[in-house]
C-alpha cells in the first residue's frame, strides 16, 4: 500500500443502543493500527449508516451491538443489497450463537465476540481489504 493510502473503516453503534464504549475502544485500536475511522456514534439507523458509508467511500463497516438488536443489523444488510452497495460488514458484541449464524447467512462477513483481541480485529480488516 502506498504512502498515501489508508484503510477507511466506518464504526457505528446501531439502533437504540446507547453503549458507545466498545465502539470507541475499537476505533482507537484501528487508529493505532494506522487506519482512518469514520466514527458515527450512537442512535444510528441502518439507513443512516448506509448513507454515511456511501458518502465516505469506506472499505469496511464495523457495527457494535451490545446484545439483541440483530433485527437492525438484518435491515442494514438488506438495505446494502437494495442499494447495490457492497463492502464487508463486521459486527462486534455479545451475539448468541444462533443469532450469529443467522447474521452470517444474511451476509455479515465476520462476528467478533466480547474480548476479541485488537490484533485479531486489525488482522482481519487488513486481510479482507487486501482481497
Amino acid at each position: 500500500m502506498s504512502n498515501n493510502q489508508r484503510i477507511k473503516v466506518l464504526v457505528s453503534v446501531i439502533g437504540l443502543d446507547g453503549h458507545f464504549t466498545g465502539a470507541e475502544i475499537v476505533s482507537r485500536y484501528l487508529m493505532d493500527a494506522g487506519m482512518e475511522v469514520v466514527y458515527l456514534g450512537i442512535y444510528q439507523t441502518p439507513e443512516m449508516i448506509v448513507s454515511a458509508a456511501i458518502q465516505e467511500n469506506v472499505d469496511v463497516i464495523g457495527i457494535s451491538s451490545h446484545a439483541a438488536n440483530y433485527e437492525q443489523i438484518n435491515l442494514l444488510m438488506e438495505l446494502m443489497k437494495k442499494n447495490n452497495f457492497s463492502v464487508p460488514v463486521m459486527c462486534g458484541g455479545s451475539i448468541p450463537p444462533q443469532d450469529a449464524e443467522a447474521l452470517i447467512k444474511k451476509g455479515v462477513s465476520k462476528i467478533f465476540l466480547p474480548h476479541s483481541t485488537s490484533e485479531s480485529i486489525v488482522d482481519y480488516i487488513v486481510s479482507i481489504v487486501k482481497k
Binding site: 439502533g15 439507523t45 446484545a67 439483541a68 437492525q72
Partner: peptide, 10 residues
C-alpha cells in the same frame, strides 16, 4: 418507526 424495530427487546 424506530420503536417498532426494537419494542420489547431487552
Amino acid at each position: 418507526p424506530m420503536g417498532r424495530r426494537e419494542a420489547g427487546v431487552l
